[in-house]
């Protein structure tokens, strides 16, 4: 990896903000089976630049399987996942070589895990965690790396003086914010999130949601958020996809799906939420 690659995609970042006339991600007929059991079946959708899509459903509905197939963590059995790469336009990430896919994984894609400890290096300082993706794409100036790490810690509301502390010394909410900083520092275009607010206190959740909303807007990010929390998708997602038993039962504008659900399962899901 050379410094040149790094410089190139730093410049490219500005291009994200102007919309392109084609989808960023096109999913066609995606299926994943675990033996005879269906993980997810025949999922198709387009995600456009700047769009945030929520995937909801109960545990075991296949939403996490789908997310892992999209992010290249699992190999689907059938289907295509086309991503609009900076260099070569639409490419099927299922069939591309592993180096290319992993390169996407640390440049244009980001993955926010439910448990921050899965997405952070717990024995590395906060600054090192944020800097890793920069160094992975060729950054070799300690001062610059540190400056950008401090900038990002600030954006996720972590005090600069915590830069040399390890995440083990952080609260759950701080760890999750650090994970987000670590993921977004290289200016990705597509963020996958798996239950990003799961396991956090309600007050901490609100802060995180606000932060994510701001970052999505400022960076023009596209995102796919898997969650079972309908309040989270109402606040974050433009669009919703409802899954049941590995299949998509309903899609649409988030508030439309939640306020006027068409499918019986969605109606059940929405009416099961306790009103506060």
């Amino acid at each position: 990896m050379s410094g040149k690659v790094f410089a190139e995609f730093s410049q490219d970042f500005s291009k994200n903000l102007g919309g392109t006339p084609q989808p960023l991600l096109q999913v066609e007929g995606l299926s994943k089976f675990y033996g005879a059991r269906r993980g997810c079946a025949d999922v198709s959708f387009d995600l456009w630049p700047g769009e945030v899509m929520g995937i909801v459903g109960e545990s075991g509905s296949g939403k996490t399987t789908l997310l892992n197939c999209l992010a290249g963590h699992l190999a689907p059995d059938t289907g295509r996942v086309l991503f609009d790469t900076r260099a070569n336009g639409m490419q099927d990430t299922v069939t591309m070589s592993e180096p290319e896919r992993r390169m996407l994984g640390r440049t244009d894609w980001a993955f926010v895990h439910q448990h921050a400890s899965d997405g952070l290096r717990m024995n590395v300082s906060a600054g090192g965690n944020v800097g890793e993706r920069l160094m992975a794409v060729g950054a070799r100036n300690y001062g610059d790396i540190r400056e950008r790490a401090i900038d990002w810690l600030g954006r996720v509301e972590i005090a600069a003086e915590r830069i040399d502390d390890r995440p083990t010394a952080f609260s759950g909410g701080m760890r999750q914010r650090l994970q987000i900083a670590r993921n977004l520092v290289t200016g990705p275009r597509l963020v996958f999130m798996d239950e990003p607010t799961g396991g956090l206190d309600v007050s901490v959740q609100a802060r995180l949601l606000d932060l994510l909303r701001g970052l999505v807007r400022e960076m023009g990010l596209s995102a796919i958020i898997v969650t079972h929390d309908l309040a989270v998708v109402r606040l974050l997602a433009d669009r919703l996809m409802v899954m049941k038993d590995g299949q998509v039962v309903e899609t649409g504008l988030t508030d439309q799906v939640l306020d006027d659900p068409q499918h019986g399962y969605t109606q059940l899901l929405v009416s099961s939420v306790l009103q506060v």
């Binding site: 649409g252 504008l253 508030d255 439309q256 306020d259 006027d260 068409q262």
Partner: peptide, 9 residues
């Protein structure tokens, strides 16, 4: 109103 806003289908 909600239909016009797209909130209802």
């Amino acid at each position: 109103m909600r239909l016009i806003y797209g909130n209802y289908l």
